[in-house]
Amino acid sequence: MKKVFGRPESLTDVPFTYCPGCHHGTAHRLVAEVLDEFGIREKTIGICPVGCSVFAYLFFNCDVICAAHGRAPAIATGIKRSKPDSIVFTYQGDGDLASIGTAEIVHAANRGENITVIFINNAIYGMTGGQMAPTTLVGQVTQTSPYGRDPKTMGYPIKMSEMLSTIKGATYISRVALTKPAYIVKAKKAIKKAFQVQLDGKGFSMVEILSTCPTNWGLSPVEASKWLEENMIPYYPLGEFRTPEEVA
């Protein structure tokens, strides 16, 4: 018998530090599989964020630098500009990309930086213990929206893929989920397409991955997946918002 599914080479053997059922692991694996399939592991430089995935440098079997909260796209710009033959990706959460790092992501997209962004949207701050994120849904209870997110004082959840897809410099923008195998297959395709855009030198690509945070949502992993499908997908529709064909 032949192994048809195992650990990609672009991940180290270090067990993930994430909570049970957290989608970070799946997202890591898909990125790693794409690096393997393109054979680009040895020329890839990843930028890990502040947050639960700050430890991503231990897991990705490629060169990695850790960014300050929100700054990954700026660091990616510096790396890609000084080493254009490298493959550069950022891995960012929603607090990172959609709150403290909005300027950096918007302008990296606007300059059409030839980088790939993996954006994990789980509608909450994980590592700091479950505070409201810019992507937290209306009415969602968090540590800092204890009576539910009230748009009157807290604003509405921000749709980054839709927003960034209005920018001319953005070449590929897609939103995916990981709650079931069919979605995971599509997510992998989107990530592959994003890296293909970079390999072709076509500019900025981003895949937004809707993810669960069972611990801070206070749900079991199975319940969390159900909650994501019932609450997040209706507000954050899956699909491609910008594709290279459109840009060409």
């Binding site: 032949k2 192994k3 599914f5 650990r7 990981l178 995971i184």
Partner: peptide, 13 residues
């Protein structure tokens, strides 16, 4: 294996 976030499952065929 696909849905396992910890890559704990290997598949052989």
């Amino acid at each position: 294996a696909m849905i396992c976030p910890d890559i704990s499952i290997e598949v052989f065929k």
